[in-house]
Design a protein around this nucleic acid. Structure first.
Lengths: 260, 260
DNA sequence: CGGTACTCTGTACGTCGTACAACGTAGGCG
DNA sequence: CGCCTACGTTGTACGACGTACAGAGTACCG
């Protein structure tokens, strides 16, 4: 796992790529390029959607657009930059409904939901570190749109950025959990329920439930309630409610953070 | 990135390994094993701590314990199971201070802090999916301990599990962000500040700040406030406060979720 | 119309996890 | 007491990966 990160290469080259600036991809001399950055990126996104970022190898992308592997390197400097452009591309295509009239809770819920849908369509996004985000048109549009949901709440600019980061971090974490739950099912020929069922009797032999009474009790209760040990949808719903309550304390002022 | 996941192989074999059950590693016949599972696991943890799970190859672990690569496969079935055992081992070694007297907020803050320290010492943990956690003695002890922080809050068992999962998910997400921020700095010869400084003038050429006024304003304010675009410590502190406020609404009842 | 800057191709290197066969060792049993 | 056999350990090999590099072919500029 090369820990897919954004913003690895030369910033100037990467920015030019993200904004599709002329001057890198084509020149007067020599044969015209047979493809375009967009075609490569689209093929890569399609592959990554079904096979993940690891399944999306440079070889497989090349096969999908019917060129040799190394020909891709005339369109993008390398896999890291390709992932950058893919990420900005899916950001750009996100649904951005008008958010004005509703309550802030429903506005933020909508933002969360749209990001959740993004992770659902493109699970590979959860593997990309955004420590150095792709500063392309997609990210800009997304950021502008999502910030607008915090208008009129009385938060200063820094707090708005913090709150948005907090919300998006939660959605990403919930999405990661959901994705890895799904991934476990897919390539083990064993469903989660089957896995837990297979482990239970074996665990009973080695695990002394009198030594850990709370763990045994709560674990059993949680397992029974969700049908399995972990239920991604429930975790998302529970978490989002807590996130909004937490932000309510910030927005509403002191009275909302009772119980302190 | 093979997307390191827990609980991949045969559950019986993995459980036996986690609980160090006899019957797999040694038999009467043939040469004695020159190592132990623990020695292999310790070496692997040390390697992963500094080089990550990718840097921790089976070859490098073997070199560290001075055997051939394939000899490791007599101790663990494969890399996935090795990671399982590593994870349970570091869980087992976590500090577990008594949590009784303090307020629930300080108890939960302590749990968060201990987990944060775990990610700080062993950043590779953030890469391990816990969709099917290693059901070993370490996880059991950790779970029992962390549940105890929720005693006496009037939450039912299911809500306690939900709340703990929520808290730990937040800490993991914050840790992931911190780790990838650190990783960006390490292998790019460019600090975050330098990277943003390099991008700013280039971005100014392509980015129309009148098209995205809020993004430009808030982004600038956030960058100025944190010295960089993203400050992991600040995000953790801000987020933890929101998490606790969100749980306060759950614990304290309806009056705390004002602003709805 | 030559030269040159470009696109595209195939080969090659070093990495990974691990399957497999060969080799050596040491306890159980005749 | 010594052989057989099960097991530990080793080296080699395979197919994947990203990408460096050299060569071949193409089409515009001077």
């Amino acid at each position: 796992m090369p820990a897919y990160r954004s913003g690895s290469g030369d910033p100037a080259r990467t920015l030019a790529l993200l904004w599709r600036e002329p001057g890198f991809g084509q020149s007067a001399r020599g044969p015209k390029q047979g493809l375009s950055v967009d075609r490569v990126v689209d093929a890569a996104i399609t592959l990554a959607d079904t096979a993940g970022l690891d399944g999306m190898s440079m070889r497989s992308v090349a096969r999908a657009v019917d060129v040799s592997t190394m020909a891709l390197y005339t369109y993008v400097p390398g896999k890291a930059e390709l992932v950058d452009v893919m990420l900005d591309a899916v950001y750009l295509r996100m649904e951005r409904l008008p958010v004005d009239r509703q309550s802030w809770r429903s506005r933020l819920t909508a933002i969360a939901e749209q990001n959740r849908a993004l992770f659902d369509m493109h699970p590979w996004i959860a593997d990309v570190s955004t420590a150095r985000p792709p500063l392309g048109p997609g990210l800009m549009a997304k950021y502008e749109y999502e910030l607008s949901a915090f208008n009129g709440l009385g938060l200063d600019d820094v707090a708005i950025d913090d709150a948005l980061t907090y919300l998006l971090t939660f959605v990403q974490a919930a999405a990661r959990a959901a994705i890895s739950t799904r991934a476990s099912q897919l390539d083990s020929t064993m469903s989660d329920e089957q896995w837990w069922a297979a482990n239970a009797p074996l665990l009973a032999r080695v695990f002394d439930s009198t030594a850990y009474p709370t763990a045994a009790r709560v674990g059993t209760a949680a397992g029974a309630a969700h049908g399995s040990a972990y239920h991604p949808d429930h975790a998302y719903q529970f978490g989002l409610a807590r996130v909004l309550d937490g932000l309510a304390a910030l927005i509403g002022g002191q009275q909302a953070s009772a119980g302190r």
